[in-house]
Design a protein around this nucleic acid. Structure first.
Lengths: 142, 142
DNA sequence: ATACTTAATTGCGATGTGCAAGTGAAATTG
DNA sequence: CAATTTCACTTGCACATCGCAATTAAGTAT
């Protein structure tokens, strides 16, 4: 909902994207939300890459300010916070998938089972499936 | 040709890619090489975003170590260095294009004329065209 | 020789990162 | 209900990186 936009270095859309998600951690958080079922703070901390808690906290704030992530208190456990991708966040899927494809081809990352093949075979269908999975979630009724 | 690979934080291919190009400048350099016809050091410096010369120098070294960029002395002017994308660098095109698409849709970047539409209409053909443009360049015969 | 261009390097203050420890609120345990 | 644990952060500090300005080395032009 918030959309704090500071002065841009340029009007190039690639640059615009990089100013929002162009760092070593933001897209890993989006990845965890999109493909690893992460919802809670501790889920991100337990990721293989080992993000520091202060970095995680500051990135989650930035991602919310950018309208990529939302948060709400966990109705089942008042201590917990549940993080979710917004529609804007979900639409980062193609970026993540192309990064994954490139990494697999040139940087010897372990190919994620099946996902990339599905993406390469039918991007449209795959995107539709991801949107459905991540956006048609039952929300707390307030 | 060099491929200095330091210890990875994880085996995830998205992470692998981000460790190589996941910063605010590397992909802008690749963009300039791919779409803006940049060849010389000063071309990158004159980009709208205003990269600092020390950052540019260190990024160019890193990109060469990662096998994304090559360099050679300018045969016409011994002071000059000519930078080029490798095949590995050219294959970052889908990443750049999807970042551009996302930025245009959600971050109000100025859409680059025609390019995105060509990409969305026929990705395969567009990629083939880019590969041809950037890789079938006459090299210095050594 | 002198001046200029090109591709960097150096110095330095400001900002960002990574690690460990601590905090406050809520839940769980006894 | 008191003590402990869990969760989501915050703080402190050492260190690395960034951004800006000035400088340098090599090559070219006059």
């Amino acid at each position: 909902m918030i959309a704090k936009r500071q002065k841009r270095r340029s009007t190039c859309p690639i640059n615009a994207s990089l100013e929002v998600v162009g760092d070593r951690w933001s897209l890993l958080i989006v990845r965890d939300l999109m493909f690893a079922g992460a919802r809670a703070y501790k889920d991100f901390l337990s990721s293989e890459e080992g993000i520091a808690t202060n970095i995680l906290a500051s990135r989650l704030v930035k991602l919310q300010e950018s309208g990529i992530v939302t948060s709400e208190r966990d109705p089942q456990d008042g201590r917990g916070v549940i993080y979710r991708l917004t529609a804007k966040g979900v639409e980062l899927a193609p970026v993540l998938l192309e990064l994954s494809r490139w990494g697999t081809r040139f940087e010897e990352g372990e190919p994620p089972g099946g996902i990339l093949q599905a993406w390469e075979t039918n991007p449209q269908a795959f995107l539709a499936e991801i949107r459905k999975q991540l956006l048609d979630v039952p929300r707390s009724t307030g």
